[in-house]
Design a protein around this nucleic acid. Structure first.
Lengths: 345, 345
DNA sequence: TCTCGGCATGTTCACGGTCACACGCCGGCG
DNA sequence: CGCCGGCGTGTGACCGTGAACATGCCGAGA
C-alpha cells in the first residue's frame, strides 16, 4: 500500500474573494458586508439578502487570520494530551473536538511522548504560540499545571478534576463514586482481600479512583493494602499480575483501567488459575473491547463523550462565550460481566 | 471527580508586545526586528543581538494571525478522521501531530461520527475555513475524496494509499504485503479453508488488505470464498463469528484488524471451540492489547507512527516546505503468537 | 417647524506582521 | 574620478476584517 498526494486543479483566480470584493459586487461598503457576517441588527433585509447572494456567488469565505488579528481572538481551543492512543483520552478528544466545532471553535492538539518538564513546556509553548483561548489537559495534570504556572500563562484551562481550590467552577464527574461502586461490588460478592492496581498518580483521574477505592474499603471496614502504581498499560498489568501471584494473598483485584485489567487476566491465566473462580478482576472505563475479553470484563463505564462536551462547555463559559452552567453529575455505571464472582475460598 | 477551571492572574499590561515595541526599545526600525525574526542574512550581529535581548526582556511572541494574514500561509495541517478512538488512527494522528510540530506546523482535527456526505462536508468546511495547507484523511477515503472533489478544494491531501493515478507521489507502505504475509502464514500452517473478515471497503486500507488476501490465496492456488465486509469493531467480529460458526466450513480466519479478531475469538470460545486447535485466527495492526488476548493474538504489526511521519513529510514536500523525497517502503511485520496453529482436521 | 434620536449605511483607522522599495555608505573597477 | 553594486537599515504600503465615528434620512415630540 502506498500514500498518495493529490493537488487538484488550480483555478488561478489570484486571490480568495474578500469582503471588499463582495461589497463591490453588491454595491455596498465593505462594512455593510462585515455587518451581515456578524449579524448586526440594523441592516435592511433586502440589503442583507443582496450581500448574501453575492457571497454565495463568489463562494466567499471569511479569512480567519484577518479576523483573529483584528479581534485578537483565535477561537481555538488547545488540547494537551498524553497517551492519546488510548481509548479514554481518544474518546474525550473526539468529543471535545465535536463540541468545540459546534460552538464554532477550532481545536489544536499537542501530544507529549514523555512527561518530562521540557516536553510539556514545548507542547504548551506550541499551543500558546497559536493563541489558544482555552486549554484542556488530558495528561499527567499535576506536572502540566506546574509548568503552566511557571510559564505564567493566562489561558483558562480545565482538567478532569477540580484541584480543590476551584470548586466554584467544579463540575462533578464522579469517578470517586465509580471506584466505590467497583469496590463495593467486590466486597458484596464476599471478597475481603482486594488489591488495587492504580494509575500514575499525577493523573488526577488515577488519584481519584484510588481515593474511591480506599474510601469504600474503609467505609466497609475491610483491611486494605497499599495500591500498586501502574502506567495504564496491559503490559504493566501483566507483569504486576505475575508479581502478585507469587504470593497470592488476595481473591480480587480492582484495576484502574481496562487495559491493565486485561494484562492481569493474562497473568492469572498463565498461572493456571480461573477467572473468576480463583481471582475476580474488575476494570474501569468499559472500552468497546472489554465485552469481548475472556472472560468478558466487569468494569465501570464512563461517558467520555459527555466528559468532553462538558469540558468545552465549561471553557467556553469561562471565556465568556456561553454561560452554560452545565453543572450536574455524570454518574459512571457498573457493568457486571463475567470476570467477577464470589471467592471460592 | 470534577472538572475545574482556573484563570491565572492577569498581568494587565494591556496588549502583547509587537515588533514595533521591540523596535522602539532596541532603537531600530520594526523592519529590522522582522528581519531578525526571519533570519535575514544582512543584519549586523550586534544589532541582531540587541533585538534578541529586547525580545527576551519583553517576552515577545510573534502573532500568528498577523503573520498568516500577510503571508496567507496558515502553517496548519488538517486531519479528517473517523473512528479516531481506535488504536491505529489514534497512533497515526499522534505521529502526524508530532511530526508537524517539529516542522513548525500546527494540526487541527475534525472528526466525523457518521460517514454520510453531509457530515464529511461539514468537517471539511470546518478545516478549510481555517485555511489548512494540507489535509490528511484517516477515514472512509473514497467518500471523502468525492466530497473533496465536489467542493472544489485546492488543498494537497494525503491518504494512506495512492489511488493509482498519483503514483509519482506514492510512498509505499505495503499493506498488501502485510495481508499476504498473514494469509501465507495460515496457508503454510496447512489451512485450506480460510475466511477473510474485511474492513469497510471505502477505507482504502481495508481494500488493500483484502486485495492482499485474495492475491495470496490465488497465488498459492487455494480456493477462496467472498470476504465478509465488517466495520472494524469487536462487536461486528463477534456476530460475524457466530454467524460463520453455524456452518463451520473453515479452519482459519484472517481478520482485517485486531478488534474484529478479538470478537471472533469470543464467538469461537462461546461455541465451545478451541483456538487455535479448532480455529486459527489472525489479526492485523498489533494493538498493544493483542499480546494479552486469550490466546495472545497472531497479527501483523504496522508502524503507525512512521506512517504518520511520512504523511507529514509528503505533505510538506508538496507544499514546498521540504523536498524530502522520503520514499521507501514501510514493511509490516508478522507477529506470531498463539492464536494460530496447524488445523486439527 | 425645528430638533432630536435612531436606523441604515459609509469612511477611516487599527490590528501586527511582511514586502517592495529607497537610502546612505563603502569598496572595486573602468 | 565617477559609477556601480552590495550591505545594513529605514519608510511606507498592504493583507482582510472589525470598531469607532460620521453621515443622511425619517419620524416623533416640543
Amino acid at each position: 500500500m502506498s500514500i498518495g498526494v493529490a493537488v487538484p486543479e488550480e483555478p488561478q483566480r489570484g486571490r480568495a474573494p474578500s469582503i471588499r470584493d463582495v461589497a463591490r459586487l453588491a454595491g455596498v461598503s465593505h462594512q455593510t458586508v462585515s455587518r451581515v457576517l456578524n449579524h448586526h441588527p440594523s441592516i435592511r433585509p433586502e440589503t442583507k439578502q443582496r450581500v448574501l447572494d453575492v457571497m454565495g456567488e463568489l463562494q466567499y469565505k471569511p479569512n480567519r487570520a484577518a479576523r483573529a488579528l483584528v479581534t485578537s481572538r483565535s477561537r481555538t481551543l488547545g488540547i494537551l494530551s498524553a497517551s492519546s492512543t488510548q481509548y479514554g483520552p481518544a474518546s474525550s478528544i473526539a468529543a471535545i473536538e465535536s463540541a468545540a466545532r459546534t460552538a464554532g471553535y477550532w481545536v489544536s492538539t499537542a501530544n507529549i511522548e514523555s512527561a518530562d518538564a521540557a516536553s510539556i513546556a514545548d507542547a504548551l509553548a506550541h499551543l500558546t504560540a497559536q493563541g489558544i483561548e482555552g486549554l484542556v489537559v488530558i495528561a499527567p495534570q499535576v506536572r502540566v499545571f506546574d509548568t503552566l504556572a511557571r510559564l505564567e500563562m493566562d489561558v483558562p484551562y480545565v482538567s478532569l478534576q477540580s484541584t480543590g481550590r476551584d470548586e466554584d467552577h467544579a463540575l462533578s464527574v464522579d469517578q470517586i463514586a465509580g471506584a466505590r461502586m467497583a469496590t463495593r461490588h467486590l466486597i458484596e460478592l464476599g471478597h475481603r482481600s482486594i488489591y488495587h492496581l492504580a494509575g500514575p498518580q499525577d493523573w488526577i483521574e488515577a488519584e481519584a479512583r484510588m481515593r474511591g477505592f480506599l474510601e469504600e474499603m474503609s467505609a466497609q471496614d475491610v483491611a486494605t493494602t497499599a495500591p500498586i502504581l501502574g502506567d495504564w498499560t496491559a503490559e504493566f498489568g501483566y507483569y504486576a499480575g505475575r508479581e502478585l501471584l507469587t504470593v497470592r494473598d488476595f481473591t480480587a483485584i480492582f484495576a484502574s483501567n481496562d487495559q491493565m485489567a486485561l494484562g492481569l487476566m493474562h497473568a492469572v491465566r498463565d498461572a493456571g488459575l480461573d477467572i473468576p473462580r480463583d481471582v475476580s478482576i474488575i476494570g474501569f472505563d468499559d472500552i468497546p473491547e472489554a465485552a469481548h475479553f475472556w472472560p468478558p470484563l466487569t468494569t465501570v463505564r464512563q461517558d467520555f463523550a459527555e466528559l468532553g462536551r462538558r469540558c468545552v462547555a465549561l471553557l467556553l463559559g469561562d471565556i465568556g462565550e456561553a454561560s452554560t452552567e452545565a453543572t450536574g453529575t455524570i454518574t459512571p455505571e457498573l457493568v457486571v460481566r463475567r470476570s467477577t464472582g464470589a471467592p471460592a475460598f
